[in-house]
């Protein structure tokens, strides 16, 4: 059954052998909660105040890619480093403004909580919900083990 499902996924995605190197090869370690990595290589530590870094290092890019769970090729890392640095440089203009006394606007029309009555309603049929699932097992989504030995 699992084999069939895999076949479905391959068909659905027009599947593909990856050209992205495994994370280890891109210099990022694999640990799930690898706090050690997070800042040791990053030149701008948290809590060091406002560091308006105009140019990102390769390690910065790899760190952010890891936070976003985004696999990048070496070429993409290099291109991203240049482009993001250039874009961040533009944001420097904001420093000119004194915003000490200005409140932030997270949404334009300050909406407070919106409540509705907690009335039971029918849910979507399970088959509908699972019809787009890459891998399915019975009435469940099939995923790889989160914690492995």
């Amino acid at each position: 059954m699992a084999g069939d499902n895999k076949g479905d996924r391959a068909k659905q995605n027009g599947r593909t052998s990856s050209t992205i190197p495994p994370r280890a090869a891109a210099g990022v370690s694999d640990g799930l909660l690898d706090e050690g990595y997070a800042w040791t290589d990053a030149p701008h530590r948290p809590g060091a105040g406002y560091t308006w870094s105009m140019s990102l290092t390769r390690d910065d890019v790899l760190h952010v890619a890891r936070l976003a769970r985004l696999g990048l090729t070496d070429e993409e890392v290099e291109r991203m480093q240049g482009q993001l640095s250039l874009i961040l440089e533009q944001f420097e203009t904001l420093r000119r403004l004194d915003t000490e006394q200005v409140p932030p606007t997270f949404q334009v029309f300050a909406t407070t909580n919106v409540f509705r009555d907690d009335e039971p309603r029918p849910s979507f049929p399970v088959d509908d919900v699972l019809q787009n699932a890459p891998l399915r097992e019975g009435d469940y989504l099939r995923v790889r083990a989160v914690l492995e030995e």
Binding site: S18, P22, N132
Partner: peptide
Amino acid sequence: VKYGFSAEAPTMWEEMERTRGL
């Protein structure tokens, strides 16, 4: 996992990164 493109890789995190990367 839930819907959309999905790539294969040896571990869950690699699978997620590869899915999003591709």
